[in-house]
């Protein structure tokens, strides 16, 4: 299954897991699976529309992905806060 890596407060919300294996065919499905497995992550990465929040970056095997990006069994998916602030 694809391997999802989490950083910052998302780890704590995911039960302290830095990495999780979740069954999904796209990044969007993977993030919804995360919410089902760990409801406290609900609303933190995907908004109500099902879109990845503006300042969250998702990488699939090191390349920027979107909700529709396909994920394979051996893919690494990483969720990172964007470089922003002030």
């Amino acid at each position: 299954m694809p391997l999802l890596s989490l950083h910052g407060p998302l780890r704590q919300l995911a039960g302290g897991n830095a990495q999780l294996e979740l069954d999904a065919l796209t990044v969007g499905e993977l993030l919804r699976e995360l919410e089902r497995a760990h409801p406290q992550t609900g609303g933190w990465i995907l908004d109500e529309r099902g879109l990845i929040r503006r300042h969250i970056n998702v990488f699939v095997n090191g390349e920027r992905g979107s909700e529709q990006t396909p994920v394979e069994l051996t893919d690494r998916v990483e969720v990172l806060p964007a470089i922003t602030g002030g």
């Binding site: 406290q40 609303g43 908004d47 109500e48 529309r49 099902g50 879109l51």
Partner: peptide, 16 residues
């Protein structure tokens, strides 16, 4: 503690 329910209806066209 994070409160629940602070969100717009899922699947809509807008986000909080």
């Amino acid at each position: 503690e994070q409160a629940g329910g602070v969100a717009l209806p899922e699947g809509g066209e807008q986000a909080l």
